[in-house]
Simulated scan of single mutants.
Amino acid sequence: MAASYISVPRDLTKIKSKVMFNLTKRQLICFSVAALIGVPSFFLLKQIGSTSMAAMGMMVVMMPLFFLAMYEKNGQPLEVIMGHFIQANFIRPKIRPYQTNNYYAALMRQAQLEKEVESIVRCSKENVR
């Protein structure tokens, strides 16, 4: 009699609850939206051209939703990864110089400002006399 083994993942946080057809809720939603967009596009493209062209067009329309459903890297879905990519490459500045808030420099700036205020007050008192 042969022993059968079941593989158990070591990290239980990576396990996702399956809803139906061994798919997660996210996958079901994305596949449903892909079908709702892809099937009508197939029939519209079939009227314009050939069946093979319509099938290719349907695949082009449905692929981004399949990627949204299935792709995940480091526990982050595709839209989060794309958001980080857009932030890093287009929104945030490219050069971010390192700046420290030196406490000694802050004290020196404060002392300089106090000297300036004191000299302004002294000049205004002399002008009043």
Rank of each mutant, 00 (worst) to 15 (best):
Y98F: 14
G49N: 12
L28H: 08
A105Q: 14
S17A: 14
N74Q: 13
K14Y: 08
A34S: 14
G83S: 14
I6Q: 13
F67K: 06
P40F: 09
Q76T: 05
I120S: 08
N22P: 00
F67H: 04
T100L: 07
M1I: 04
K46M: 09
A106N: 11
R129T: 02
H84I: 03
I95R: 15
S4E: 13
P93D: 10
T13M: 06
F85W: 15
P9L: 06
L113I: 05
L78W: 03
K18L: 15
K16V: 12
T51K: 09
R129K: 11
K46Q: 12
S41P: 00
L12C: 00
S41K: 08
P77Q: 04
Q112D: 14
I86K: 03
K25G: 14
M62W: 01
L68Y: 10
M59R: 00
I29M: 12
K125V: 06
I95M: 07
V8K: 15
M108R: 13
R109F: 10
N127V: 02
N22T: 06
K25I: 02
M59D: 04
I29V: 15
M56I: 13
M82E: 07
S124R: 09
M20C: 08
Y71G: 00
F31Q: 08
C123Q: 12
Y98E: 11
Q110D: 10
G38W: 02
N101S: 11
S32Y: 04
Q112L: 13
T100A: 13
N74R: 14
E116C: 04
L36F: 11
R26F: 05
V33W: 01
I86Y: 02
N102R: 05
G38D: 04
F85P: 00
P9C: 02
M108I: 11
F21H: 11
T100V: 11
G57Y: 08
N127I: 05
M108F: 13
Q87P: 01
P40Q: 10
P9H: 01
S119Y: 02
I6D: 10
F90M: 09
F85R: 08
Y71I: 12
M53D: 12
L36M: 12
V39W: 07
C30D: 03
A69L: 04
G57V: 04
I15W: 06
P64G: 07
Y103V: 13
V19W: 05
L36K: 01
M82R: 05
S52D: 14
A105W: 07
M1F: 06
A105F: 10
M20A: 13
G38M: 05
R10G: 15
S124L: 14
A88T: 03
T51I: 04
K94W: 08
M108A: 12
